[in-house]
Amino acid sequence: MPGSPGLPIFPSVLEHRVKNWVELQDALFAGSWNESLRRFRPTLAFRGMPDSRHDLATSLNRRGGNYSRQEHVMLRAFRKYARGTSNPCESLWDWLSLAQHHGLPTRLLDWTFSPYVALHFLSEDPDLYGVDGVVWSVDYRETNRVLPRPLKAQLQEEGADVFSAEMLASVAGDLATFDRLTRHPFVLFFEPPSLDERIINQFALFSVMNDASARLDTFLEKQKRGVRRLIVPAHLKQEVRDKLDQANITERVLFPGLDGLSRWLRRYYNPRPPGAPDKTQ
C-alpha cells in the first residue's frame, strides 16, 4: 500500500509515536469497544506505509499534470479489453475495483479493516527498515457525517457503515453522477467485490473521493475527527516483522499463489539488516 514519498506535514492530525510492541497493540486497538453492541467492534480503516513521510496520494494523483482527466478514458478502455477475463463485473464500481486491483491508475486508495495487515505493508520491505513507518487509521463513522444525503440514506437503509459496490451503484451508476452528488469534498469507504483470495485475505476496502484530482490527506487534515497517524520507529520494525511472521501475517497468506510464496521466502530468509537491534525495549 505504499504512497509516494514526500515531506507532508499533518499538524492537526492526531499523531502518536509508539515506543514498543505492547504500546503499539494498545494504540492499534484503542477505541475499539462498541458500547451499543457490547463488543470490540471498531469502525476503523487502516493503511500501513513503510515511510512516515509517504502521503496519501492516489495513483492518479501521482501521475501529475492533467492525468486525472484521462480517468474515464482509461477505465473505458480497460472495460473494453478486459471483458474476456473470468472476473464478472456488473457495475462501474466492480470495474473500478478490478482496475485498481490490477494496477490501473485510479482515484481509489487501498485500505484494510485489519491493523495487522496494515503492519504487514509497513514492514514488508527490509530495505526501508532504516526509516520510521506509519499506520493511518480513519473512523469511517466520522467521515460518513459529511456524505451527501443520498449516500447517507443508503447507509441507513442498509444498516451499514461502509458501502458495497452494489450500494454505490444504486446511488451513482457512473463517476460523473457520483462527482455531482455535492459540491463539497467527501470520502467514503467501500468493500470491493471478492475478486480473488487476495482481496479476501487482505480484508480489503477502498477509499474514494468525489474528485479524481482530490488529495485524501488534504481532506483528512481538515476533517481531524477520527483521524490518527501511528508512527512506528525504525528500530521497532524488525520486531514487528518477526512477530507478524509468527502470527502468519505474511505474503504467503496475503498474496495466495506461487508469487506470494516466493515473496515470503525471499524476505523471510533475507539476511538480518546490519545494525538491527537484538531486542526492543
Results as ranks from 00 to 15, higher is better:
Lys224Cys: 03
Thr106His: 01
Phe203Leu: 12
Glu35Thr: 12
Tyr140Arg: 06
Trp111Val: 07
Gln70Gly: 00
Ser68Glu: 13
Phe29Val: 08
Phe186Ser: 04
Ala165Arg: 04
Leu258Ser: 03
Trp21Asp: 01
Pro193His: 14
Leu265Ala: 14
Gly3Met: 08
Ala172Leu: 01
Phe40Arg: 06
Gln246Trp: 01
Gln223His: 15
Glu239Lys: 12
Pro42Asp: 13
Trp93Glu: 09
Arg228Ala: 08
Arg267Asp: 12
Asn210His: 03
Pro274Phe: 11
Glu71Cys: 00
Ala160Asp: 13
Leu28Pro: 04
Gly31His: 02
Gly48Tyr: 04
Arg41Thr: 15
Leu261His: 00
Glu157Asp: 14
Gln281Tyr: 09
Leu147Thr: 10
Pro150Gln: 02
Arg38Lys: 15
Ala99Gly: 00
Glu23Asn: 10
Ser68Ala: 12
Ala45Pro: 14
Phe190Leu: 05
Arg225Glu: 11
Arg149His: 02
Gln202Pro: 13
Leu261Gly: 00
Ile199Ser: 03
Asn248Ala: 01
Arg39Gly: 00
His120Thr: 06
Gln156Phe: 13
Leu175Thr: 05
Pro256Lys: 07
Asp55Lys: 09
Pro193Val: 12
Gly275Arg: 07
Ser123His: 09
Glu157Ser: 14
Asn210Lys: 04
Ser12Asn: 15
Ala234His: 03
Leu216Pro: 05
Glu35Asn: 09
Gln281Lys: 13
Pro88Glu: 12
Thr250Leu: 02
Asn61Thr: 06
Pro192Arg: 06
Arg39Leu: 10
Cys89Leu: 09
Val117Ile: 08
Arg39Pro: 00
Gly226Leu: 04
Arg229Gly: 04
Val13His: 04
Ala57Arg: 13
Ala214Thr: 04
Pro5Phe: 09
Arg266Tyr: 11
Arg263Glu: 05
Ser170Ala: 14
Asp211Met: 02
Asp125Gln: 12
Gly3Val: 05
Trp93Thr: 09
Ala169Met: 00
Val131Phe: 03
Gly64Gln: 11
Ser137Asp: 10
